[in-house]
Design a binder for these strands. Structure first.
Lengths: 284, 284
DNA sequence: GCCATCATTACATATAGCGGAAAAACGGCA
DNA sequence: TGCCGTTTTTCCGCTATATGTAATGATGGC
């Protein structure tokens, strides 16, 4: 089986496949999701309506409402709809739960300057991890969570793995059970390998190298743990395989760990979010 | 009059003051805006309801719907509502209209590496400018648009000014008329100074130094212009006053201009977005 | 352990949202 | 230029959905 392209990968993460939403709010959200999944160019009305599972008439009415609300823009002559910059700006403030990003920013800057690599801040979101912040180092990097706001399946990539591995037993199992099919779908893991990897990370306290999903790319990540040793987030650096050689690795891990430990007490422990089961995650 | 703090500044940019919205979608959006304005900690139901101008019962129902949709999270024990990480992740893709961000990213990286300063990418959004992307340089910087997703009044800061100054006459006038009261509200400008500044920027083709809003901070910005010389975006660097001295300035401007000109033809010209008048902007 | 504040549920009413169908605008293509 | 398929937009009657008031249940502070 072939490894999926980035585009395929991210497409599969979108939960557009809602079965006929009812009520105007769910429909509107379905449209927003659809537009988000459409990429930067936007979508035609008919297409968006079909994808979101809404009649064209409703889609038209709803999209107009959303334009009135400033959440959606429409290209003046092509009629293409897209999410608005204002929507982007509005939601950008959601990427700072309990001021996590603000608190971690200086650390990311320091790490990126000290190590010369790209640094990421990741948090869990359901069965995925989301990149909250990123500081570019001089070395150019490709990564699953390259972009701020980018989503990866929990367990894919070092930062994501660091979070998963440090979840408490029951949650960890729940996530593994949910994610295994998603991962196998890509032919990237078999279960034993995956579970071994998780154990290794949990015991060593950091995730390194990772799965070699991206050739020549390597990374290290450590979790930020609260007093009950629950993972609040992960700090991760992305670099090239050659830069992360055997003699440099321990140093990097130590630097990361020190920063993560210093960070932990500063973070106001926010509770696990309340969520309806089975929502907001892709179904395969 | 005192210069406003960052917090005050950004608070004033939030358009939460909708007069009793009717229909479930406008109410929901009002709640989302309210939560966005509340910062990272989130809000209680009652408070959010009052701020959004909705009865507590409605707020409760709507917020539950939004949680079902994955757009809102609720802290398990404190009951505080906040925008969800998934919402953040969803909207992050709105920050790439016509793939503008993807196209500019390599340039930002190159500039940040070459100049050693922090580089910003800004686009217009109504009467404001929004930061789409940012690459940190080694020198630490404070800026109005520090954060990705951050909003500034069109005309404040170099990047924002570069866009405003290069708008076609009629639009420029419209923006100036709308923004003058907002600017005067902060006691930062008088009209003649503001207009002179705009003229200077328009004629020279770049904005430098700027208004000295932030002590010791300086910046340069150039617009990215399409074939009709309409500003599509602005590239801006932020640095310290001393780093941006008289002898370095011309070099920096030239580097920026060259990149901006090389970028222009790559960008698929997207039309002015269709918007209802008088929406989505703060009223003072 | 009490009281005040806040969160949640119940319910009857009206209204806002719904889809089908028709009309109008658009965009090719010859 | 004129025709036709597609897409967008409007209209309208029906229904379901969203609404506020009011009552109940939970929470937290003193």
């Amino acid at each position: 089986m072939m490894a999926p392209s980035f585009k395929e990968y991210f497409h599969l993460m979108d939960d557009v496949s809602d079965g006929r939403p009812s009520g105007s709010l769910p429909r509107a959200v379905a449209l927003l999701r659809t537009l988000a999944a459409s990429g930067g160019e936007g979508m035609r009305l008919t297409n968006a309506a079909a994808t979101a599972g809404v009649t064209p008439a409703s889609a038209h009415r709803l999209l107009r409402m959303l334009i009135d609300e400033g959440m959606v823009e429409q290209d003046a002559r092509s009629k293409y709809y897209r999410l608005s910059i204002e929507f982007f700006s509005l939601a950008a403030r959601a990427g700072n739960p309990s001021n996590l990003r603000d608190i971690c920013r200086p650390v990311l800057l320091r790490l990126s300057a000290a190590l010369g690599d790209t640094v990421f801040l990741l948090v869990r979101s359901g069965f995925d991890a989301v990149c909250l912040d990123r500081c570019e180092g001089p070395v150019s990097i490709r990564s699953f969570t390259n972009d701020i706001g980018g989503k990866v399946i929990l367990g894919v990539g070092q930062g994501s793995m660091a979070i998963l591995a440090h979840l408490p037993e029951s949650e960890r199992e729940e996530v593994i059970r949910f994610n295994l099919p998603r991962l196998l779908h890509f032919g990237l893991f078999d279960e034993v390998f995956f579970r071994n990897e998780i154990e290794r990370v949990r015991e060593s306290g950091f995730a390194a190298r990772g799965s070699g999903l991206l050739p020549d790319m390597a990374g290290v990540a450590v979790p930020i743990l609260d007093r009950e040793r629950r993972p609040l987030a992960a700090i991760s650096i992305g670099t090239t395989v050659e830069r992360l050689n055997a003699e440099r690795l321990p140093t990097v891990v130590q630097v990361l760990r020190r920063e993560a430990e210093a960070l932990a007490p500063k973070i106001n422990p926010f509770d696990a979010a309340l969520r309806r089961p089975g929502q907001q995650v892709g179904s395969y």
